[in-house]
């Protein structure tokens, strides 16, 4: 694995391109911080919107984390979608496959090299996120949650792109499928948001949908949790909102209510895991599955019966009657 990863990283980090991407990325994040800072100070700071403004640190942190995700999402597939299909396309694949290199080493090497650059992007932005802590109003748990959500997303984007790269013949189709997957996971969040609103009672958001009695049922909470967990945006967002609402980092207590004549009447409680937990399980589980499938699909042949190999007969043919 190290052999492939070392080779890939050496090629990738060579020349100015990797450095240029990193610089542009950091520049964009810095601009964002400045813009958010100025905006918050001048607009929200004036209390035009009424009510106490959210703390500056918190605004800064969530803005940076969301933009980070939006920047990483298109970059992550670019680092792995080419990796195996590219070797096929450039006809270097067979040469590697005739060596005793394990398919697992080959695939994991590609994954590690693609993922390490994406993770580098997450790590270099960490100081910006920690900086937000200094502005106050933000808890360390929130920072860790945001950071973790990003890392899980990176792993999934890299693994799914790797998978398409392993099973598709051309880099073009591999890229298309990779970007579709990433887009679905992000844009799907908008859709998920509306469905997930079912389970949002704890946010105090008025119910858009409800049972005949008005309140959400336990089943609705479970379905909502599942949908929210399908996207890093909603999973991270809802988990963070729960933290802000003084719910636990791992377990949420949600009320089951019914609208009475004098407002909602609490009928009971349902315990849910925080969406980031289910999100991590789904995304990491899928990643593991996709990597495993990639490993299985790269080797063109498999050893038939290594334990009991056939041996050649002493003399197979008489060359004279071969024709």
């Amino acid at each position: 694995m190290q052999v492939v990863a070392r080779k890939e990283l050496r090629s990738r980090m060579r020349g100015g391109r990797a450095f240029a991407v990193l610089s542009v990325y950091l520049l964009l994040l810095t601009c964002l911080v400045v813009a958010v800072y100025a905006f918050t100070k001048n607009v929200i700071g004036n209390q035009e919107f009424g009510g106490p403004p959210p703390p500056l640190g918190r605004i800064l942190f969530y803005a940076v984390t969301l933009v980070e995700l939006m920047l990483i999402a298109p970059l992550a597939p670019a680092f792995t979608a080419n990796s195996i299909a590219g070797e096929r396309e450039r006809q270097t694949f067979d040469l590697v496959m005739t060596t005793p290199l394990r398919a697992r080493s080959f695939v994991l090497g590609k994954l590690v090299s693609g993922l390490s650059y994406t993770l580098l992007l997450v790590f270099v932005a960490l100081p910006v996120q920690v900086l937000a802590l200094l502005f106050g109003g933000l808890s360390l748990t929130e920072v860790l949650l945001g950071f973790w959500t990003l890392i899980v997303a990176c792993i999934f984007y890299a693994s799914s792109s790797l998978f398409f790269s392993a099973v598709m013949k051309s880099t073009t189709t591999a890229s298309i499928f990779s970007y579709l997957t990433v887009a679905l996971s992000l844009i799907g969040a908008v859709f998920v948001f509306f469905v997930g609103i079912f389970g949002s009672g704890f946010l105090g958001i008025p119910f858009f949908f409800g049972g005949p009695e008005g309140g959400p049922t336990a089943t609705l909470y479970y379905v909502g949790l599942l949908f929210v967990s399908l996207s890093p945006v909603t999973a991270g967002g809802f988990s963070a909102a729960a933290l802000i609402a003084n719910e636990g980092a791992f377990i949420l207590r949600l009320p089951i209510e019914r609208f009475g004549p004098n407002g909602p009447i609490q009928q009971g409680e349902v315990l849910l895991v925080s969406p980031w937990v289910t999100y991590s399980l789904i995304y990491l589980g899928l990643s593991a599955l996709l990597v495993w499938l990639s490993v299985r699909s790269v080797r063109p042949t498999t050893a038939r019966n290594p334990a009991r190999p056939t041996r050649p007969p002493a003399a197979i043919i008489d060359p004279a009657d071969a024709s």
């Binding site: 005739t98 060596t99 005793p100 038939r304 190999p309 056939t310 041996r311």
Partner: peptide
């Protein structure tokens, strides 16, 4: 079947490689 130096191409691909 095929053998290289007596190693089966189908059963012992690593030895063949």
């Amino acid at each position: 079947e095929a053998w290289i130096e007596g190693y089966s191409v189908l059963d012992e691909p690593d030895a063949v490689r």
